[in-house]
Design a binder for these strands. Structure first.
Length: 290
DNA sequence: GTCCAGGTCGCGC
DNA sequence: GCGCGACATGGA
């Protein structure tokens, strides 16, 4: 089955797909030559599908799935997940207007950067953000791959392709498995605890999609393993850009570009982006990735 | 062997 | 509120 999905004027497929490193984390796969994004997805019905997303002119993308017959709710779920992953319903106009007033940032609006790819569920993205803390990017990639390959539900037609496992799968496998087989290190306890809360219904992450930033911060603080950096990154994932991810990369960038390589306080560094108000994260991100 | 990576927690002050 | 060691893992 395939669909043609209209996109906003300020949307561009390639910049969304590759704007940050998420497209390199399983079960995403990106083909740079074909400008095509793939993701294996387990639907609520239990069916596993391989979603293919590619640009279709300037005003649309094609979404296709070649995995047998899908009922109405499965089709609706796929399209809803694509909208979320590509941020088709997010309004970035205030950010672009601000970019156009600043010569060095005008390219962001002209080239339609800004919509950064996210996973289909908030659970998946919390896990992935935790995989970025206190380790190297290569380890993040390999841990995500291990989670998918060892715990994910396989595609019927291509069993080597697997979906990101559900929270209940993390719980069934157990904390020791996460540590000893998936090699998630000290994160295993944090991720097991999170999965347990989500799987049991104690924590309903789907409600987060409609929460104001202040409430999201409260929710994020309550998750063990989420500190200031991960909180800011997850707020970005959720569409709130007012908090800066002050980590080693942030410090390196700001010190090199604005402090002649000298150490600075987080406060002084953050002040650099204060004029961006609710869009500080994006301003920093594209200041660093011109 | 030793150090550290896009940090965070829990403790003691 | 701030400083500090511990935390798993694998690569340099």
């Amino acid at each position: 089955m395939n669909w043609i999905v209209e996109v906003p004027n300020d949307f561009k497929f390639e910049t969304t797909a590759t704007g940050h490193g998420w497209y390199r984390l399983a079960p995403f796969h990106y083909d740079n030559d074909q400008k095509t994004l793939y993701k294996v997805e387990e639907l609520e019905s239990g069916k596993v599908v391989h979603i293919t997303i590619a640009p279709y002119g300037e005003d649309a993308v094609t979404v296709s799935v070649n995995d047998g017959v899908l009922d109405d709710s499965e089709q609706a779920e796929i399209l809803q997940k694509v909208r979320w992953m590509l941020r088709l319903d997010e309004n970035l106009q205030p950010f672009y207007e601000k970019c156009l007033q600043i010569p060095e940032m005008a390219y962001v609006a002209h080239e339609k950067h800004g919509r950064l790819l996210r996973s289909s569920t908030i659970f998946e993205d919390i896990v992935k953000v935790m995989l970025t803390t206190n380790t190297t990017w290569n380890r993040t990639i390999s841990m995500a791959a291990a989670i998918v390959n060892k715990m994910g539900k396989p595609l019927e037609s291509h069993p080597e392709l697997k979906a990101f496992p559900k929270p209940s799968t993390f719980v069934e496998k157990g904390e020791a498995y996460l540590k000893e087989e998936i090699r998630l290190g000290y994160r295993s306890g944090y991720l097991y605890e999170l999965a347990l809360k989500v799987a049991s219904g104690e924590l309903d992450l789907t409600k987060w999609k409609n929460l104001p930033t202040e409430q999201l911060i409260k929710e994020l603080k309550a998750i063990k393993g989420i500190g200031p950096y991960a909180q800011s990154t997850l707020l970005m994932i959720l569409g709130s850009y007012s908090e800066l991810p002050v980590d080693s990369e942030f410090r390196k960038h700001v010190e090199n570009k604005y402090f002649k390589g000298k150490k600075m306080t987080a406060k002084a560094a953050s002040a650099l982006y204060s004029e961006w108000g609710n869009y500080k994260y994006l301003a920093y991100w594209f200041d660093r990735h011109p």
